[in-house]
Simulated assay, not measured.
Amino acid sequence: MDPAAGGRQSDRDRDETGRARNARPRDGLGRPLPRGATGVARQPEGVPRSPNQTLVEAQRLLDDGRPFHAHEVLEDAWKTSAEGHRALWKGLAQLAVGATHAARGNRTGAVTLLRRGADHIEPYQTEPPYHIDIAGLLRWARGNAGILETGAGQLPTPRLRSAP
């Protein structure tokens, strides 16, 4: 019985304190699957990574067509970063969520998150930390938001860093 559900049995996954858990299997784009279905392995949450490790892992996931999982890696950095870079990681996570929405066919959500993410990373353009290609990501996010808004095109994979 779930007191939050008015005493009736809830089908939502909750821990012993009543907080939501993400125990349901998910597909490669993070969408919940029916219980008992075989899903894609999730990224473990709360893994401490250096900024370089975060960017390498997130790029690998983006390259593999798994932007939802890249978002989870970037979200860990966002939640644990120092205040001065928190908006950077938040913006990068939002760009990955925008790519997730685009892959799911949700153009409105994609446009919103691409623009929101771009707004968060823009202040870092003059001195990009960790060799992040802020200018390239801004072009990618804003340009593709405009393309998606017209209903045309597929979203190319973003490059977090410029090629060496």
Score class of each variant (00 low, 15 high):
Ala20Gln: 13
Ile134Asp: 04
Leu155Val: 03
Gly39Trp: 06
Pro48Ala: 12
Ala96Thr: 01
Arg35Ser: 14
Ala5Gly: 07
Thr100Glu: 07
His120Ser: 07
Asp15Gln: 06
Pro44Lys: 12
Pro129Leu: 09
Gly151Asn: 05
Arg116Val: 10
Thr38Ile: 15
Arg66Lys: 12
Arg161Met: 11
His85Ile: 09
Ala41Gln: 12
Ile147Lys: 13
Pro34Val: 00
Ile147Ala: 11
Glu72Pro: 07
Lys79Met: 11
Asp119Leu: 00
His85Leu: 15
Ala37Phe: 11
Trp78Glu: 05
Leu160Asp: 05
Pro3Gly: 15
Ser50Gly: 12
Arg35Ala: 12
Phe68Ile: 03
Arg86Pro: 06
Asp133Trp: 08
Arg8Val: 15
Glu149Ile: 04
Gln53Met: 02
Gly36Asp: 02
Gly46Glu: 07
Ala118Leu: 06
Thr157Glu: 12
Glu75Met: 00
Leu113Ala: 08
Glu72Lys: 06
Val111Gly: 06
Arg26Asp: 05
Asn52Leu: 13
Lys90Phe: 09
Val40Phe: 08
Arg42Ser: 13
Asn52Lys: 09
Thr17Asn: 14
Ala4Pro: 09
Gly105Glu: 04
Ala152Tyr: 12
Lys79Asn: 06
Glu45Lys: 05
Asp27Gln: 08
Tyr130Pro: 04
Ile121Cys: 04
Tyr130Cys: 02
Val111Trp: 02
Arg21Thr: 15
Leu113Asp: 01
Lys79Gln: 10
Arg115Gln: 12
Leu155Ser: 04
